[in-house]
Nucleic acid binder design. Structure first.
Length: 585
RNA sequence: GGCCCCGUAGCUCAAUUGGAUAGAGCAUCCGCCUUCUAAGCGGAAGGUUGCAGGUUCGAUUCCUGCCGGGGUCGCCA
């Protein structure tokens, strides 16, 4: 049980009974009342804003309400002290016994500690990466990949039924360009001198192998033929190959999506037509002319053109949006609406998309489309990941798309490993831009959070290994440690660690609700920091060492603490998809 | 020019979604290695949260207007 939830319920119960007696008004809005771990030790263990929140509707000073509530809070088990401070905060100090009991709980729940069930098994679709299969992934894709993946883990952890999804943009002009590029490489493999790759095609070396494969498969069959005869074949072949590559890269990053939806298949299955008919029926499409975009930019070739438009403005977008190109083809937007229409029909009312910051301008129209296509019953949330700048020793690593010369995600994985990439990607809020420095992330110092957290976990393991020399193995498993006489844990630093461990379920919950997985990374860093500090105290005060062969009872208490720290760090690392290390070498 | 994100300690970033004295790391200065891994720990110093208003018991957080940086702007995806 989440302790904050527990005390919240207690205070709500107290408020309700005062309402009943008439000491407080009835039907108070208590929704924003909460308990938190006190930031400042001088403020006790837990703090509540209850009196401040109620002040206005009750019509009394916060402090008066606080003292009314305080009298009852004092009667709750394990509450040692109730204080009123500042503008009217209620501070609880709890008996050590309460924290010992928390420790016992954490140990007996084990890896499931922090899990919750408020998702109620509701279906959520999380779509992320969704890069065009026109080339390998690079580091910015990794940010979205990790972000989406960890969001999914966290939502599962709190009880949602999550589907991780990748939407493959395997239709349209860019895929045709891929097919043409592959044809160039194919001709090259057959001995042609292709010279420079023409503007608009993909010059990257990754297509050379595909050209060779096509040459092996078909010989010279398509070498001199007109494009219309081979384009589809070449496009499909190479985009399929690219998807294999991308999936392998994702897998190397520890990202495994359950569903890969092909844009081409969505179109072929008629979902665009269905979507269009639906919108038409609801009078949400018309043929019209958009006004010229204002401001600078290369709009010199702009001219008035009637287009098939979706009434996005009806749902808050600031312009209606084109569904068909002037050549009669559906726009990307149209097939993306169809994709969301399909998702909704697959039973997802809640859809979460993770996009790169360059798609920010697309959010309003897509949300508008989802509102339209689901008649307001579906909900789309879009989270953006800001740009990642790849660096090496502080210097930018230049990536030129024109030459096709860029650092692939795969090469970064090979260089630093997936765990480091995953963790580093969570050391910034998704709204902040970030630098990814290939050298700094490998440093084994305190300013490398991955290392620092791993080191804490390894330290716990090391202590437990050493303990094995003094205790039989069966006495060291979490369950038997939970049975230890924990009353000997009295030191402030130790109790602080238990308090921090008690906040873990709340961290998971808030990270899942706000879709902000970086909170987990910061929490793990803080927990690791407390643990390292305690470890070091053992050097100054020998009786704070975890292992004390002369006092087996005390040692078992300490080991209980160590094991619970290990367990929560491991659980947090698993949530972010990082393998906890037993030892660092 | 419109829209979106960012602006917090010298630097890189947090801040439990409106809470108390705004916190970490790096860099600077001062301490700590016969150890359960010093790959670490403790302490000091560092702030008008870009600027100006507003909302209220209370604003880094919400609103308005500016300033600066980034992104994006009919048929590309």
């Amino acid at each position: 049980m989440n302790i904050f939830e527990y005390f919240r319920k207690e205070i709500l119960r107290i408020i309700a009974s005062f309402s009943e007696e008439g000491a407080l008004p009835k039907n108070l809005d208590v929704s924003s009342i909460k308990f938190e771990l006190s930031k400042n030790l001088a403020h006790g263990d837990l703090a509540s804003n209850a009196a401040l929140v109620l002040s206005r509707s009750v019509g009394e000073e916060p402090k008066q309400i606080a003292s009314l509530l305080a009298g009852e809070l004092r009667k709750i088990d394990h509450v040692e002290e109730v204080g009123i401070a500042g503008p009217g905060f209620i501070n609880l100090t709890l008996e050590n016994k309460f924290w010992h009991e928390q420790l016992r709980q954490i140990l007996s729940i084990g890896a499931a500690y922090g899990d919750a069930n408020f998702g109620n098994g509701d279906k959520v679709n999380v779509e992320y990466v969704s890069a065009n299969p026109t080339g390998p992934l690079h580091i910015a894709h990794a940010r979205g990949a990790v972000f989406g993946d960890v969001i999914s883990n966290l939502l599962e952890k709190v009880g949602y039924l999550v589907t991780r999804e990748y939407y493959i943009n395997d239709a349209g002009a860019q895929i045709a360009a891929l097919g043409r590029s592959a044809h160039m490489r194919y001709c090259q493999a057959l001995g042609d001198d292709i010279g420079e790759m023409p503007e608009g095609l993909y010059p990257g070396e990754y297509l050379i192998g595909i050209g060779q494969e096509l040459a092996n498969l078909y010989g010279a069959k398509w070498q001199k033929k007109p494009e219309t005869e081979w384009l589809n074949l070449f496009s499909e072949f190479s985009s399929a190959k690219m998807m294999e590559l991308i999936r392998a890269d994702l897998s190397a990053l520890g990202v495994h999506q359950e569903v890969f939806t092909s844009e081409g298949e969505v179109v072929d299955a008629g979902w665009v037509d269905q979507m269009f008919n639906f919108l038409k029926e609801k009078n949400l499409v018309y043929t019209g002319v958009l006004s010229r975009p204002k401001g600078s930019g290369a709009q010199d070739n702009w001219e008035k053109r009637p287009q098939l438009l979706f009434r996005a403005t009806k749902f808050g977008d600031n312009s209606d949006r084109a569904l068909k190109k002037t050549n009669g083809e559906w726009t990307y937007f149209a097939s993306d609406i169809a994709n969301h229409f399909l998702k909704f029909n697959r039973g997802f009312r809640r859809m979460i998309n993770i996009w790169g910051a360059d798609h920010a301008g697309y959010i309003d129209r897509m949300k508008a489309a989802v509102s339209g296509i689901t008649e307001g019953k579906g909900q789309l949330e879009v989270k953006l990941c800001q740009i990642v700048h790849l660096k090496k020793a502080g210097r930018p690593v230049r990536m030129s798309k024109r030459s096709g010369d860029f650092v692939t995600l795969r090469s970064v994985i090979d260089e630093v490993g997936k765990d480091i990439i995953r963790f580093i990607m969570l050391t910034r809020s998704n709204d902040s831009q970030m630098d990814f420095d290939l050298e700094k992330v490998l440093e084994q110092t305190r300013d490398n959070p991955v290392f620092y957290v791993q080191y804490a976990h390894a330290r716990c393991c090391s202590i437990l290994r050493h303990a094995g020399q003094h205790f039989p193995k069966k006495d060291l498993d979490p369950v038997s440690l939970a049975a230890a006489e924990l009353g000997k844990i009295r030191n402030r630093s130790e109790l602080n660690i238990i308090k921090t461990l008690s906040a873990w379920p709340q961290i998971v919950e808030s990270a899942a609700i706000s879709l902000e997985p970086h909170r987990v990374a910061f929490y793990l860093y803080d927990l690791a920091s407390l643990f390292h500090a305690l470890w070091n105290k053992g050097k100054e005060e020998a009786d704070l060492k975890f292992l004390n062969p002369r006092d087996p009872e005390l040692t078992r208490c300490r080991l209980a603490l160590v094991e619970s720290v290990r367990s929560v760090i491991a659980s947090g690392l698993h949530s972010v998809g990082v393998e906890p290390l037993q030892e660092l070498r």
